[in-house]
Write a protein that binds this DNA or RNA. Structure first.
Lengths: 140, 140
DNA sequence: CTCTCAATGGATAAACGTATCCATTGAAAG
DNA sequence: CTTTCAATGGATACGTTTATCCATTGAGAG
Protein backbone atom coordinates (compact mmCIF):
# COMPACT_ATOMS: atom_id res chain seq x y z
CA UNK A 1 0.00 0.00 0.00
CA UNK A 2 2.61 2.53 1.14
CA UNK A 3 6.23 1.80 0.25
CA UNK A 4 8.88 1.13 2.87
CA UNK A 5 10.82 4.16 1.63
CA UNK A 6 7.87 6.47 2.28
CA UNK A 7 7.39 5.01 5.74
CA UNK A 8 11.09 5.40 6.52
CA UNK A 9 10.87 9.01 5.39
CA UNK A 10 7.82 9.78 7.53
CA UNK A 11 9.33 8.06 10.53
CA UNK A 12 12.61 9.94 10.16
CA UNK A 13 10.81 13.24 9.67
CA UNK A 14 8.82 12.57 12.82
CA UNK A 15 12.03 12.04 14.75
CA UNK A 16 13.40 15.31 13.41
CA UNK A 17 10.14 17.05 14.33
CA UNK A 18 10.51 15.65 17.85
CA UNK A 19 14.00 17.17 18.08
CA UNK A 20 13.71 20.59 16.45
CA UNK A 21 16.98 22.32 15.66
CA UNK A 22 19.12 19.36 16.70
CA UNK A 23 21.21 17.69 14.06
CA UNK A 24 20.46 13.98 13.90
CA UNK A 25 22.87 11.57 12.29
CA UNK A 26 21.70 8.94 9.81
CA UNK A 27 22.97 6.35 12.25
CA UNK A 28 20.63 7.64 14.94
CA UNK A 29 17.73 7.99 12.54
CA UNK A 30 18.30 4.42 11.40
CA UNK A 31 17.83 3.14 14.93
CA UNK A 32 14.79 5.35 15.48
CA UNK A 33 13.10 4.26 12.28
CA UNK A 34 14.25 0.67 12.03
CA UNK A 35 15.67 1.32 8.58
CA UNK A 36 19.09 0.19 7.31
CA UNK A 37 21.51 3.09 7.77
CA UNK A 38 22.87 3.31 4.23
CA UNK A 39 19.44 2.95 2.73
CA UNK A 40 17.96 5.60 4.96
CA UNK A 41 20.83 7.89 3.98
CA UNK A 42 19.60 7.84 0.41
CA UNK A 43 16.04 8.48 1.54
CA UNK A 44 17.27 11.48 3.53
CA UNK A 45 19.21 12.75 0.54
CA UNK A 46 16.04 12.72 -1.47
CA UNK A 47 14.23 14.66 1.25
CA UNK A 48 17.06 17.17 1.18
CA UNK A 49 16.75 17.66 -2.58
CA UNK A 50 13.10 18.50 -1.94
CA UNK A 51 14.03 21.03 0.71
CA UNK A 52 12.44 19.07 3.54
CA UNK A 53 15.64 18.63 5.54
CA UNK A 54 19.12 20.07 5.58
CA UNK A 55 22.10 17.76 5.86
CA UNK A 56 25.67 18.48 6.82
CA UNK A 57 28.81 16.38 6.53
CA UNK A 58 31.63 15.73 8.93
CA UNK A 59 32.00 16.34 12.63
CA UNK A 60 28.70 17.34 14.23
CA UNK A 61 26.97 16.56 10.98
CA UNK A 62 23.50 15.12 10.47
CA UNK A 63 20.06 16.27 9.42
CA UNK A 64 17.61 18.88 10.64
CA UNK A 65 14.04 19.52 9.62
CA UNK A 66 13.66 22.76 7.68
CA UNK A 67 10.77 25.16 8.18
CA UNK A 68 9.64 24.33 4.68
CA UNK A 69 9.82 20.62 5.47
CA UNK A 70 7.65 21.09 8.52
CA UNK A 71 4.98 22.73 6.40
CA UNK A 72 4.85 19.86 3.93
CA UNK A 73 1.85 17.54 4.15
CA UNK A 74 2.21 13.84 4.86
CA UNK A 75 0.58 13.20 1.50
CA UNK A 76 3.31 15.13 -0.28
CA UNK A 77 5.97 12.98 1.39
CA UNK A 78 4.24 9.76 0.40
CA UNK A 79 3.78 10.97 -3.16
CA UNK A 80 7.44 11.90 -3.30
CA UNK A 81 8.40 8.23 -2.98
CA UNK A 82 5.39 6.37 -4.31
CA UNK A 83 4.52 8.71 -7.16
CA UNK A 84 1.66 11.14 -7.40
CA UNK A 85 -1.71 9.47 -7.27
CA UNK A 86 -3.41 9.66 -10.61
CA UNK A 87 -6.93 11.09 -10.26
CA UNK A 88 -7.84 9.23 -13.44
CA UNK A 89 -6.61 5.83 -12.27
CA UNK A 90 -9.21 3.16 -13.04
CA UNK A 91 -9.20 -0.19 -11.25
CA UNK A 92 -10.67 -1.81 -14.35
CA UNK A 93 -8.16 -0.26 -16.72
CA UNK A 94 -10.72 1.84 -18.57
CA UNK A 95 -9.45 4.96 -20.25
CA UNK A 96 -11.10 7.23 -19.95
CA UNK A 97 -13.00 6.44 -16.76
CA UNK A 98 -15.20 9.08 -15.20
CA UNK A 99 -17.38 11.91 -16.40
CA UNK A 100 -19.92 10.47 -18.80
CA UNK A 101 -18.33 7.00 -18.80
CA UNK A 102 -17.55 5.93 -15.23
CA UNK A 103 -16.63 2.33 -14.54
CA UNK A 104 -18.62 0.39 -11.91
CA UNK A 105 -15.88 1.09 -9.38
CA UNK A 106 -15.34 4.73 -10.20
CA UNK A 107 -17.38 6.03 -7.29
CA UNK A 108 -15.89 3.64 -4.78
CA UNK A 109 -12.35 4.29 -5.81
CA UNK A 110 -12.82 8.05 -5.95
CA UNK A 111 -14.05 7.90 -2.39
CA UNK A 112 -10.93 6.06 -1.25
CA UNK A 113 -8.71 8.54 -3.06
CA UNK A 114 -10.61 11.50 -1.62
CA UNK A 115 -10.26 10.11 1.88
CA UNK A 116 -6.55 9.69 1.46
CA UNK A 117 -6.09 13.19 0.08
CA UNK A 118 -8.30 14.67 2.78
CA UNK A 119 -6.74 12.70 5.59
CA UNK A 120 -3.06 12.64 4.78
CA UNK A 121 -3.15 15.91 2.88
CA UNK A 122 -4.32 17.86 5.89
CA UNK A 123 -1.62 16.64 8.27
CA UNK A 124 1.60 18.59 8.22
CA UNK A 125 5.00 17.03 8.90
CA UNK A 126 5.53 19.35 11.87
CA UNK A 127 2.46 17.81 13.49
CA UNK A 128 4.19 14.42 13.59
CA UNK A 129 6.22 15.76 16.49
CA UNK A 130 3.13 16.39 18.59
CA UNK A 131 1.89 13.50 20.77
CA UNK A 132 -1.43 12.43 19.32
CA UNK A 133 -4.51 13.57 17.42
CA UNK A 134 -3.08 15.66 14.50
CA UNK A 135 -4.52 16.20 11.03
CA UNK A 136 -7.83 15.33 9.41
CA UNK A 137 -11.38 15.56 10.58
CA UNK A 138 -13.61 13.31 12.68
CA UNK A 139 -12.96 10.46 15.08
CA UNK A 140 -10.30 7.78 15.48
CA UNK B 1 -1.49 1.39 -4.76
CA UNK B 2 -3.25 -1.55 -6.35
CA UNK B 3 -1.10 -4.11 -8.17
CA UNK B 4 -1.33 -4.74 -11.87
CA UNK B 5 -2.29 -8.35 -11.18
CA UNK B 6 -5.27 -7.30 -9.08
CA UNK B 7 -6.42 -4.86 -11.76
CA UNK B 8 -6.06 -7.50 -14.45
CA UNK B 9 -8.14 -9.84 -12.32
CA UNK B 10 -10.89 -7.30 -11.73
CA UNK B 11 -10.95 -6.33 -15.37
CA UNK B 12 -11.15 -9.96 -16.50
CA UNK B 13 -13.86 -10.73 -13.95
CA UNK B 14 -15.83 -7.75 -15.22
CA UNK B 15 -15.62 -9.10 -18.75
CA UNK B 16 -16.85 -12.48 -17.56
CA UNK B 17 -19.68 -10.79 -15.64
CA UNK B 18 -20.62 -8.99 -18.85
CA UNK B 19 -20.84 -12.33 -20.67
CA UNK B 20 -22.51 -14.68 -18.19
CA UNK B 21 -22.33 -18.36 -19.06
CA UNK B 22 -20.15 -17.80 -22.12
CA UNK B 23 -16.70 -19.34 -22.05
CA UNK B 24 -14.06 -16.69 -22.70
CA UNK B 25 -10.57 -17.63 -23.80
CA UNK B 26 -7.50 -16.14 -22.16
CA UNK B 27 -6.65 -14.69 -25.55
CA UNK B 28 -9.91 -12.77 -25.62
CA UNK B 29 -9.60 -11.70 -22.00
CA UNK B 30 -6.10 -10.46 -22.70
CA UNK B 31 -7.39 -8.12 -25.37
CA UNK B 32 -10.27 -6.98 -23.17
CA UNK B 33 -8.05 -6.25 -20.19
CA UNK B 34 -4.88 -5.09 -21.92
CA UNK B 35 -2.88 -7.76 -20.10
CA UNK B 36 -0.26 -10.07 -21.66
CA UNK B 37 -1.97 -13.35 -22.53
CA UNK B 38 0.36 -15.75 -20.74
CA UNK B 39 0.52 -13.57 -17.68
CA UNK B 40 -3.22 -13.22 -17.51
CA UNK B 41 -3.50 -16.99 -17.81
CA UNK B 42 -1.70 -17.35 -14.50
CA UNK B 43 -3.91 -14.72 -12.92
CA UNK B 44 -6.97 -16.63 -14.10
CA UNK B 45 -5.55 -19.86 -12.74
CA UNK B 46 -5.28 -18.24 -9.36
CA UNK B 47 -8.87 -17.07 -9.55
CA UNK B 48 -9.86 -20.62 -10.40
CA UNK B 49 -8.08 -22.01 -7.37
CA UNK B 50 -10.16 -19.59 -5.31
CA UNK B 51 -13.35 -20.80 -6.94
CA UNK B 52 -14.06 -17.49 -8.65
CA UNK B 53 -13.96 -18.85 -12.18
CA UNK B 54 -14.04 -22.21 -13.88
CA UNK B 55 -11.61 -22.96 -16.66
CA UNK B 56 -11.68 -25.63 -19.33
CA UNK B 57 -9.00 -26.80 -21.74
CA UNK B 58 -9.12 -27.64 -25.43
CA UNK B 59 -11.70 -26.95 -28.08
CA UNK B 60 -14.37 -24.54 -26.85
CA UNK B 61 -12.32 -23.99 -23.73
CA UNK B 62 -11.97 -20.82 -21.72
CA UNK B 63 -13.21 -19.32 -18.47
CA UNK B 64 -16.63 -18.61 -16.98
CA UNK B 65 -17.54 -16.74 -13.83
CA UNK B 66 -18.91 -19.03 -11.13
CA UNK B 67 -21.84 -18.16 -8.92
CA UNK B 68 -19.48 -18.10 -5.99
CA UNK B 69 -17.13 -15.79 -7.89
CA UNK B 70 -19.94 -13.38 -8.59
CA UNK B 71 -20.67 -13.13 -4.90
CA UNK B 72 -17.10 -12.25 -3.98
CA UNK B 73 -16.40 -8.64 -3.06
CA UNK B 74 -13.97 -6.50 -5.02
CA UNK B 75 -11.95 -6.13 -1.83
CA UNK B 76 -11.52 -9.89 -1.59
CA UNK B 77 -10.13 -10.00 -5.12
CA UNK B 78 -7.67 -7.22 -4.42
CA UNK B 79 -6.55 -8.84 -1.19
CA UNK B 80 -6.09 -12.13 -3.02
CA UNK B 81 -3.28 -10.60 -5.06
CA UNK B 82 -1.99 -7.79 -2.87
CA UNK B 83 -2.31 -9.51 0.47
CA UNK B 84 -4.75 -8.83 3.28
CA UNK B 85 -4.49 -5.32 4.61
CA UNK B 86 -3.09 -5.30 8.10
CA UNK B 87 -5.40 -3.39 10.48
CA UNK B 88 -2.38 -2.71 12.68
CA UNK B 89 -0.22 -1.21 9.94
CA UNK B 90 1.44 1.99 11.15
CA UNK B 91 2.81 4.54 8.69
CA UNK B 92 5.45 5.53 11.22
CA UNK B 93 6.51 1.98 11.96
CA UNK B 94 5.36 2.03 15.57
CA UNK B 95 4.49 -1.28 17.11
CA UNK B 96 2.14 -1.28 18.65
CA UNK B 97 0.18 1.66 17.24
CA UNK B 98 -3.38 2.27 18.38
CA UNK B 99 -5.37 1.85 21.54
CA UNK B 100 -3.60 3.74 24.28
CA UNK B 101 -0.59 4.59 22.12
CA UNK B 102 -1.75 5.82 18.70
CA UNK B 103 0.76 7.47 16.41
CA UNK B 104 -0.03 10.96 15.05
CA UNK B 105 -1.25 9.38 11.82
CA UNK B 106 -3.26 6.56 13.36
CA UNK B 107 -6.62 8.28 12.97
CA UNK B 108 -5.96 9.43 9.44
CA UNK B 109 -4.74 6.08 8.24
CA UNK B 110 -7.55 4.17 9.96
CA UNK B 111 -10.00 6.39 8.12
CA UNK B 112 -8.40 5.55 4.77
CA UNK B 113 -8.45 1.84 5.54
CA UNK B 114 -12.06 2.00 6.68
CA UNK B 115 -13.08 3.76 3.50
CA UNK B 116 -11.41 1.14 1.37
CA UNK B 117 -13.01 -1.71 3.26
CA UNK B 118 -16.39 -0.03 3.19
CA UNK B 119 -16.19 0.98 -0.43
CA UNK B 120 -14.57 -1.98 -2.14
CA UNK B 121 -15.89 -4.47 0.37
CA UNK B 122 -19.50 -3.68 -0.41
CA UNK B 123 -19.21 -4.12 -4.18
CA UNK B 124 -19.68 -7.62 -5.48
CA UNK B 125 -17.93 -8.95 -8.57
CA UNK B 126 -21.27 -9.63 -10.25
CA UNK B 127 -22.01 -5.91 -10.04
CA UNK B 128 -19.03 -5.18 -12.30
CA UNK B 129 -21.16 -6.42 -15.18
CA UNK B 130 -23.80 -3.79 -14.59
CA UNK B 131 -23.34 -0.44 -16.36
CA UNK B 132 -22.67 2.08 -13.59
CA UNK B 133 -23.32 2.94 -9.93
CA UNK B 134 -22.56 -0.34 -8.03
CA UNK B 135 -21.37 -0.82 -4.48
CA UNK B 136 -20.78 1.54 -1.56
CA UNK B 137 -22.79 4.37 -0.09
CA UNK B 138 -23.10 8.04 -0.96
CA UNK B 139 -22.18 10.08 -3.99
CA UNK B 140 -19.59 9.75 -6.78
C1' DC C 1 -7.74 -42.82 -32.90
C1' DT C 2 -6.20 -38.56 -34.73
C1' DC C 3 -6.28 -33.67 -35.15
C1' DT C 4 -6.77 -29.32 -33.29
C1' DC C 5 -7.44 -26.23 -29.79
C1' DA C 6 -6.67 -23.82 -25.37
C1' DA C 7 -5.33 -24.10 -20.59
C1' DT C 8 -1.40 -25.61 -17.69
C1' DG C 9 3.08 -25.48 -15.57
C1' DG C 10 7.93 -24.78 -15.59
C1' DA C 11 11.86 -22.15 -16.83
C1' DT C 12 13.75 -17.81 -17.70
C1' DA C 13 14.20 -12.90 -17.73
C1' DA C 14 13.24 -7.82 -17.31
C1' DA C 15 12.01 -4.09 -14.08
C1' DC C 16 11.70 -2.28 -9.79
C1' DG C 17 12.13 -1.62 -4.74
C1' DT C 18 15.03 -2.63 -1.16
C1' DA C 19 19.40 -3.34 0.80
C1' DT C 20 24.61 -3.59 1.46
C1' DC C 21 29.39 -2.21 0.79
C1' DC C 22 32.79 1.10 0.47
C1' DA C 23 35.79 4.74 -1.40
C1' DT C 24 35.32 9.69 -1.70
C1' DT C 25 34.07 14.20 -0.22
C1' DG C 26 33.46 17.98 2.83
C1' DA C 27 33.62 19.85 7.41
C1' DA C 28 34.86 20.76 12.24
C1' DA C 29 38.35 19.90 16.01
C1' DG C 30 43.02 19.69 17.63
C1' DC D 1 47.99 20.58 8.32
C1' DT D 2 46.34 16.40 10.26
C1' DT D 3 42.85 13.73 12.29
C1' DT D 4 38.29 12.40 12.80
C1' DC D 5 33.75 12.26 11.63
C1' DA D 6 29.49 11.74 8.86
C1' DA D 7 27.19 12.44 4.50
C1' DT D 8 27.70 11.33 -0.48
C1' DG D 9 27.64 8.59 -4.62
C1' DG D 10 28.65 4.53 -7.19
C1' DA D 11 28.60 -0.35 -7.64
C1' DT D 12 26.56 -4.49 -6.55
C1' DA D 13 23.17 -7.78 -4.87
C1' DC D 14 18.65 -9.62 -3.50
C1' DG D 15 13.51 -10.34 -3.63
C1' DT D 16 9.19 -9.61 -5.67
C1' DT D 17 6.27 -8.40 -9.37
C1' DT D 18 5.55 -8.53 -14.02
C1' DA D 19 6.36 -10.62 -18.31
C1' DT D 20 7.75 -14.02 -22.02
C1' DC D 21 8.53 -18.57 -24.04
C1' DC D 22 7.26 -23.11 -24.80
C1' DA D 23 6.53 -28.09 -24.09
C1' DT D 24 2.84 -30.72 -21.95
C1' DT D 25 -1.77 -31.85 -20.77
C1' DG D 26 -6.58 -32.47 -21.34
C1' DA D 27 -10.71 -32.01 -24.02
C1' DG D 28 -13.89 -31.79 -28.02
C1' DA D 29 -14.44 -32.54 -33.21
C1' DG D 30 -13.89 -35.44 -37.15
Amino acid sequence: MISRSAKYALSALRWLALHPGERQQARVLAVATGAPRDYLAKVMKRLEREGCVEGRKGWGGGFVLTARGGRRSVLEIVELFDGRMDPRECLLGLKPCGGTTPCPLHGSWSRVRATMIGSLGSTRVAALGEPARAGGRRRS
